[in-house]
């Protein structure tokens, strides 16, 4: 068992500016594709730019896409979010499919989520509506007046009936039946 995730920064869910309460706002502001015109490691990025970039731009009008060719360096995708955070992805040897997948991931995120471990998978401002549970919930208020030692409260809650008790019950039933017959 590895415990490396314990050293990650723990955090709770944060959502920027009550996103989605009224309408949804895409949190990705701009994306810069940095690539080399000649190197092999940028081939997928170049292919993506030639064939699929326009489609991506049309689908996401809220994102500004910049292209930055630079010589003899591995390609990266740099994303800037509305909250000012930046995140970059090393796109070395990526195929055009992979580039599109990462771009879609950056687009659907609200900030750089890597390096943070979420402690809870939900967030609520209203933890209880009918009131939190207490040990006195559904208990009879008569319990407050109980005198101890109390025989009734000392016996097991869900104990089975003893043989004597069962015999007594049978006897009582027989008595009742006899009474009914005689009357």
């Amino acid at each position: 068992m590895s415990n490396s995730h314990l050293f990650l920064k723990p955090a709770f869910i944060t959502t920027p500016g009550q996103n989605g309460v009224g309408r949804y706002v895409c949190q990705l502001q701009r994306v810069v594709l940095k690539f080399c015109m000649s190197h092999g490691s940028s081939r997928g990025v170049r292919e993506f730019i030639e064939t699929r970039l326009l489609e991506f731009v049309k689908e996401s009008p809220e994102v500004a896409v910049y292209l930055k060719p630079r010589r003899h360096k591995s390609p990266i995708i740099k994303a800037e979010y509305l909250n000012g955070e930046t995140q970059w992805v090393n796109a070395r040897q990526f195929t055009d499919d992979e580039v599109l997948k990462w771009l879609n991931l950056l687009k659907s995120q609200s900030s750089n989520r890597s390096g943070v471990r979420l402690r809870k998978l939900m967030h609520t401002d209203f933890p209880s509506i009918q009131g939190p549970w207490t040990p006195y919930l559904f208990r009879d208020p008569q319990l407050n007046l109980a005198r101890f030692p109390s025989e009734e409260l000392s016996r097991p809650l869900h104990g089975t009936k003893t043989a004597t008790q069962q015999l007594f019950e049978i006897f009582e039933k027989q008595k009742a039946a006899q009474n009914a017959n005689s009357s």
Binding site: M1, S2, H5, N19, Y24, Q27, L105, S108, Q109, S110
Partner: peptide, 15 residues
């Protein structure tokens, strides 16, 4: 409900 975000979790290790 509205979908507001799609991301990936932190890196989990399977050892």
């Amino acid at each position: 409900a509205t979908v507001i975000e799609k991301t990936l979790s932190h890196t989990k290790t399977h050892f």
